[in-house]
Design a protein around this nucleic acid. Structure first.
Lengths: 187, 187
DNA sequence: GTCTATATCCGGATAGAC
DNA sequence: GTCTATCCGGATATAGAC
């Protein structure tokens, strides 16, 4: 039995990725966990504190994944594939990513929440840049432009690809084809 | 003096692109136009009817742009540049595009509104595909993959590029560099 | 076509008992 | 740590006067 605080973060994250920050309520979480509205406010006094906790949790999860991949000496291609797989998993659950969901709502978030969304984005982008630069040195990747821009192209396709995939019955195929194209173009 | 109905669509569109569908209210529109809540309900009985009208208006605007560009015999490059310019204009107003905003909220929209978002997406993608295929025939573009996938890559970068641009003080530069990279890669 | 007024409901948040 | 009960504001939407 995991503790309530962790469960709240888990359920709230799913709701944000499915419906968006301004479309879910404490009541939605309460229904799923069979607790009351007030119990959630005990753990997270405000909705802002909840979304901040969610984004810090996202960052932690990503850092752990990166650490794990590196400790297993995964190749650059395998690391990028692991990132793609995260998105394939989200799509299977009819969800988009946190960057896309909270990114489109960013103007409605409190400043301290905006910062955490941005931090999460920087984390993904820096990781991707590192992979690309390393791959260029080892020779698995060949691209002329700046790694920053190349990383942006990949992230943009992940974020938007999963959004538009929902337009067509959560179709994975175009999403996969698009990501494969990007990968083969630089190898 | 344009009529009220048109003004409501104009203001509501801006609010959706800035804050999102679930973060704006009839009261927000009313304040800007100095009218009352009920006056908006006269023109648009439900919020769903309003967002449907907004998306149909977006489609109409795009169709008119396409028609105009073609009547002026604009080149493939110039047509793509016109699409980029639309996004540069949005970014200058601290807005994202309708596809990104309503796409991330799609699960919270009524079915008839979901369809219009999808229709708008298809319109943009088909236009882009047509430009790419024509350009390949005339020789200005050289890409090996399917035009469908190439069009997806470009749209994805437009949709997500403008979302992440807001993370960093609405910085146009990375957005422009990314789009230029995509364009030069296929020319 | 716009107004005032209001109905109805739901949101985030708090007080205080257990 | 969770509950019941409640406050308060805001949201969509409607009725009926002008």
């Amino acid at each position: 039995m995991t503790d309530t605080k962790t469960e709240i973060i888990r359920v709230a994250t799913g709701l944000i990725l499915e419906k968006g920050y301004n479309a879910f309520s404490y009541a939605d979480i309460a229904k799923v966990l069979h607790i009351r509205n007030a119990a959630i406010h005990y753990h997270f006094p405000t909705k802002t504190s909840l979304v901040v906790a969610i984004m810090k949790n996202q960052q932690e999860g990503l850092k752990n994944l990166i650490k794990e991949l590196k400790s297993k000496n995964k190749s650059e291609i395998e690391q990028i594939q692991a990132l793609f797989d995260l998105y394939i998993g989200l799509l299977a659950q009819k969800q988009i990513c946190a960057l896309g969901s909270l990114g489109s709502d960013i103007q409605t978030l409190a400043p301290e929440a905006q910062i955490e969304v941005k931090n999460d984005y920087e984390l993904v982008r820096n990781w991707l840049m590192e992979i690309l630069e390393m791959g260029k040195i080892t020779g698995v990747f060949k691209f002329q432009c700046d790694a920053t821009i190349q990383a942006s192209v990949i992230i943009n396709n992940l974020i938007a690809g999963i959004i538009v995939a929902r337009f067509n019955g959560f179709d994975k195929e175009t999403f996969k084809h698009t990501m494969n194209l990007l990968l083969t173009e630089i190898t």
